[in-house]
């Protein structure tokens, strides 16, 4: 097997695996169950996209793609930080009501707090 063949096989393998990874992550984002889970999925999506860009850089030979990947990682990091601040500021999201059934501990107190937040 020649060098180019090995490389081409592994590029195809990597592209297929990353596509599967993207699919699994999107499934997690769809399932939720709450905002932080989706945010984590988004973070993972950015990481996989960076990997994908690296694979494309190898496949096409355009080294400029590496700079794009670095810029994307910067933007992804800032987005995650901003979203985390948002979660910190907002508190529990209403969509966790369903998930709360299995863990009934914080039934009292919390809803009142949220109402207060909403009134602001």
């Amino acid at each position: 097997m020649s060098a180019a063949e090995i490389l081409s096989y592994s590029i195809h393998f990597a592209a297929a695996a990353l596509s599967l990874g993207l699919l699994l992550t999107v499934l997690r984002i769809l399932r939720g169950p709450a905002l932080p889970d989706r945010l984590l999925g988004l973070d993972m999506l950015v990481a996989i996209a960076i990997g994908f860009i690296a694979v494309i850089a190898i496949k096409s030979g355009f080294n400029l793609y590496i700079d794009i990947a670095i810029a994307l990682s910067l933007v992804g990091f800032l987005a995650t930080v901003a979203f985390a601040r948002f979660i910190l500021a907002r508190g529990l999201s209403p969509e966790t009501e369903k998930g709360r059934e299995t863990m009934p501990k914080p039934r009292h107190g919390k809803p009142a707090r949220r109402k207060h937040k909403g009134a602001r």
């Binding site: 090995i6 096989y9 393998f13 592209a15 695996a17 990353l18 699994l24 997690r28 690296a54 694979v55």
Partner: peptide, 21 residues
């Protein structure tokens, strides 16, 4: 070397996504 890195990196990434699920 590049092929090994590619395969290892993509396997880790897809396992991370599977773990997420």
């Amino acid at each position: 070397a590049v092929s090994l890195l590619l395969v290892a990196g993509s396997v880790f990434t897809v396992l991370a996504a599977l773990g997420l699920l």
